[in-house]
Every structure is written in C-alpha cells, then in structure tokens.
Deep mutational scan, measured.
Amino acid sequence: DIIVVALYDYEAIHHEDLSFQKGDQMVVLEESGEWWKARSLATRKEGYIPSNYVARVDS
C-alpha cells in the first residue's frame, strides 16, 4: 500500500472529497492526475485528496 502523510489541513469542497488535518496518514487507493482517492487511517473514510497536499511515507 502507498501511505501518505498530510502536509497541510484540507477542508473538503465537494461531497466526494476527504477532509484531513496536517499529520494525518492515508492509504492511496487510486492515483489519477492531481486528485487521488484515499482512505484515512484514523477515520477509515474514503474520498478524493489533492495530491500536492500530501507526501509519501517511506516504509
């Protein structure tokens, strides 16, 4: 799995977006363009995230 960590807070604009806080970790489910589908490890919610707001966690 690709794990990313939030670099900034993000408040969902559309209902399919995923809100998150700086430091939150998410599993990337699908990478396509600038918006990635991800699942929050904390809340288990899924939605689209702006890929420029996150960084990959080296395992």
Results as ranks from 00 to 15, higher is better:
E11A: 11
R56W: 09
E30R: 08
E31Q: 15
V5M: 08
Q25F: 15
A12S: 08
A42N: 11
S19W: 04
R39P: 01
Q25L: 15
Y10D: 00
V4R: 02
S51E: 04
S59C: 13
L18Y: 02
S32Y: 14
S51D: 03
V5P: 00
P50F: 06
E30P: 03
L41W: 04
A38W: 02
S32C: 15
V27K: 09
G33W: 04
Y10Q: 02
R44Y: 14
R56M: 10
K37T: 05
A6G: 06
T43S: 10
V57K: 07
I3Y: 10
W35K: 12
R56S: 08
S32H: 14
A42M: 12
Y53S: 09
Q25D: 03
P50E: 03
D17Q: 15
A38N: 01
A12T: 04
R39S: 05
S32A: 11
E31Y: 13
W35A: 04
L41D: 04
F20C: 02
Y53H: 10
V5R: 06
Y8I: 07
I49P: 01
S59F: 12
W35C: 09
L29P: 00
A55N: 07
E11T: 13
I13R: 13
L41M: 10
I49Y: 01
A12Y: 02
A38C: 12
D58M: 10
N52R: 12
A42P: 05
A42R: 15
P50D: 07
A12E: 03
A38G: 05
V4F: 09
A55M: 14
D1T: 13
E46Y: 06
M26A: 01
N52W: 15
H15E: 15
V5I: 14
D17N: 10
H14E: 07
D1Y: 14
N52P: 04
N52D: 11
H15Y: 12
P50K: 06
Y8T: 07
S51T: 05
D17S: 09
I13K: 13
M26C: 01
V4Y: 11
R39Y: 11
Y48L: 09
I49N: 01
G47I: 01
I2K: 12
A12H: 02
A55L: 09
H15I: 13
P50W: 07
A55F: 08
A55S: 11
L7Y: 03
L41E: 05
G23W: 05
T43M: 03
L7C: 10
V27C: 10
R39D: 01
Y53T: 04
S40V: 08
V5T: 07
I3D: 02
W35G: 04
E16S: 12
V28Y: 02
E30L: 10
M26T: 00
K45A: 10
D9F: 04
K22L: 06
D24M: 05
M26W: 02
D1W: 14
W35M: 10
I2T: 10
Y10I: 02
Y48A: 04
V5G: 02
E46V: 13
Q25P: 05
A55P: 02
Y10A: 01
H15C: 13
R39V: 10
E16M: 11
H15A: 15
D9L: 02
R44P: 05
S51C: 12
H14C: 14
I13D: 08
E16N: 14
G33V: 04
M26R: 00
L29T: 07
R39Q: 09
E30Q: 10
E30G: 08
K45E: 13
D9C: 07
G33Y: 05
L7Q: 05
I3M: 08
P50V: 02
E30F: 10
T43D: 09
L29K: 05
S59T: 13
V27A: 07
R39I: 10
R39M: 11
Q21N: 11
V4G: 01
Q21L: 12
E30C: 15
I49L: 04
E16I: 08
G47D: 00
I13G: 08
D24A: 05
Y53R: 09
T43G: 06
E11V: 15
Y48R: 11
G23V: 01
I3N: 04
I2P: 08
S59D: 11
T43R: 03
S19F: 03
V28G: 01
D17W: 13
K45Y: 07
M26K: 00
E46D: 06
E34F: 15
V54G: 01
V54P: 02
W36H: 05
Y48N: 09
S59V: 13
V27F: 08
R44N: 15
E31K: 13
H14M: 07
D9G: 06
G47W: 02
V4N: 00
K22S: 07
D24C: 04
G47C: 01
Y48H: 05
A38P: 00
E34P: 12
K22C: 09
S59H: 11
S51Q: 09
S40E: 07
Q21F: 11
R56C: 09
D24R: 01
K22H: 05
R56I: 12
D9Y: 04
D9K: 06
W36L: 13
G23L: 03
S40F: 06
S19Y: 04
L18F: 05
D58L: 11
S59M: 13
S51W: 10
S19C: 06
F20E: 00
S40W: 02
D58W: 07
S59E: 13
Q25Y: 15
W36Y: 14
E31S: 15
D58K: 11
W36E: 02
L29F: 08
R56N: 07
W35F: 10
A12P: 07
I13P: 07
L29I: 10
R44I: 07
L41A: 06
L18A: 01
V27P: 00
R39T: 05
Q25T: 11
L29E: 04
T43P: 02
Y48I: 07
G47Y: 01
R56T: 08
T43Y: 04
E31F: 15
A6Y: 01
A6H: 01
F20P: 00
D9H: 07
R44H: 15
G23M: 03
L41Q: 06
E16R: 13
R44S: 14
A55T: 13
V5N: 03
K37R: 14
G23F: 05
E16T: 13
L29S: 05
Y48F: 12
L18M: 09
A12V: 02
D24S: 04
Y10N: 02
A6F: 01
R56F: 12
D9P: 08
Y8K: 10
L41R: 05
H15F: 12
